[in-house]
Amino acid sequence: MSVKIPDFRQTPTIDQVSVEERVARFNTRSIKKESKLQGLKLALNMIDLTTLEGKDTEGKVRQMCYKAMHLCDELPGLPTVAAVCVYPNHVKTAKAALEGSSVKVASVATAFPSGNSTLDVKIQDTRFAVENGADEIDMVISRGEFLKGNYNFVFDEIADIKEACGNARLKVILETGELSTLDNIRRASDIAMYAGADFIKTSTGKISPAATMPVTLVMLQAIKDYHYKTGRMVGMKPAGGISTAKGALQYLVMLNETLGSKWMNNEWFRFGASSLANDILLQLGKEANGGVYYSKDYISID
């Protein structure tokens, strides 16, 4: 299929005030009873359980991988999370720990989180992760080049990393907290998708603000427009800052009413989060307990 690459200087304009209003309206949706349970389980299943710290150890990664497969064995019928997300040097450990499960291994790469390195280093970084068994690569774009208006540079870099990924799926982190306007976020989303991204992702989690609903809505609408134009589906991953079950449900409402049922699964939507899973487990524990408080002490912290 040949796709016509658009002129990225002319991406659609975004009106921030209206975007925020739309988000406020999603948040008035009241999700109760069985739809809440269904939504919470789905959200759990969409999580990329993440540890991205300098102090990460093999032991910590191994424990997190066990948690990814056994979220809370006391509560029956829970799904696993979608993936674990680690630095490249921990991919091997994670891959071994998750063997036999359906949980994927995602690795950040390309001089994460700043992306300030040469293309060669970034490609090597990516290859290293893939060779160690990463199923998914979370790359960062060169925000400096993007803000300079050097869109071709950003596009080419993504395309090169996509090639280095081989069969691994590529998530492109825009680091929206550094792009400053929704217009820029829309433009970066379009660049990433046309350059071959399988997923577009908001943030590294290292910059504040990380994922927000207005930013995610703009990206979801970009995905929708791209899908109508090319027929290709692209996934979405808000990352960082989503730590409550209620917040996750609000994102799902937004997803449900923007991209609809084809995207309502972990093939096409992920939450990048470290503490969200436990808050959802608290809620599910409460439901299983007949609506009675479920102690945090029953849930493991990894």
Partner: peptide, 11 residues
């Protein structure tokens, strides 16, 4: 076409 108003309905 995207499929809206799908499986996840609000109670």
């Amino acid at each position: 076409k995207v499929e809206l108003g799908g499986d996840w309905t609000y109670a």
